[in-house]
């Protein structure tokens, strides 16, 4: 696991002039010689914004820092600099853009933290054709009523409308419940000290299971939409 904690200040020195780098802007470029810094091994999106790894991020602060860092780091500022500086500015700005996109979006943030803790595949492709969406398991509490609904629709599409509406309500209830559980797991994660690895992994595994259920609910929702088009009474 290569999760570096962000709590300690940045001790690195500028790759160009050797001066000490301090503060979150200096994480990206040296305030003395302006040189953009190369991406560091294991550097995370949280490092990029100098924020602690947690789910409950202050989105307004993320946006503010994104502007502040972009203002100095963007390739537009290095058009007449050396080839190396241009390449570093581009690599760092790409990283910052991805970090921004991830930290401001709650579902992307969940996937990202799970990935940092090794709970997501690293993404090796067998070939270009090897990509397949992963299929989640059917949540037990929904399986029975889902099969019943499908049968009911097959038997008598005209009478199944009420059943579809009932099922949708149940689905929405389960989804909301799952989302609440995710929120509470996130809060637990945020409260834990970063060295409590066992507890952290336990929480993240539960989140992983919940997220898979949510994925499943979404795919069922799409099926229900399709079904509704065939059931005239809805």
């Amino acid at each position: 696991m290569d999760v570096e904690t962000v709590s300690q200040p940045n001790q690195n020195a500028c790759s160009e002039c050797g001066r000490k780098l301090e503060g979150y802007l200096a994480h990206h470029f040296c305030s003395t010689c302006q040189a953009p810094q190369p991406l560091r091994e294991g550097e995370s999106y949280f490092h990029a914004f100098d924020l602690p790894m947690k789910f409950g991020l202050d989105v307004a602060l993320v946006q503010k820092r994104f502007y502040e860092i972009s203002r100095e780091l963007h390739p537009d500022r290095f058009v007449s600099s050396s080839v190396d500086d241009r390449a570093r500015s581009m690599a760092r700005m790409s990283f910052l853009n991805q970090a921004f996109q991830t930290l401001r979006n709650s579902s992307a943030l969940r996937e990202y933290i799970l990935k940092l803790y090794g709970l997501r595949a690293s993404g090796v492709e067998m070939r270009a054709e090897g990509r397949q969406p992963q299929k989640a398991a059917m949540p037990i509490e929904l399986a029975e009523s889902w099969f019943e609904l499908q049968e009911a629709v097959l038997d008598d599409p005209d009478q199944a409308g009420v059943r579809v509406i009932e099922f949708e309500a149940e689905l929405a209830r389960l989804k909301a419940q799952g989302e609440n559980r995710l929120k509470s797991l996130e809060a637990q994660f945020d409260r834990l000290p970063k060295d409590a690895e066992t507890e952290i992994l336990a929480i993240l595994s539960q989140m992983d299971a919940e997220l898979q259920r949510q994925n499943y609910f979404r795919s069922i929702e799409k099926d229900v939409e399709r079904m509704k088009r065939n059931v005239s009474s809805v």
Partner: peptide, 10 residues
């Protein structure tokens, strides 16, 4: 942009 995506092939 700029942005980057990586794929690992085997």
């Amino acid at each position: 942009i700029p942005t980057v995506a990586r794929e690992v092939y085997t």
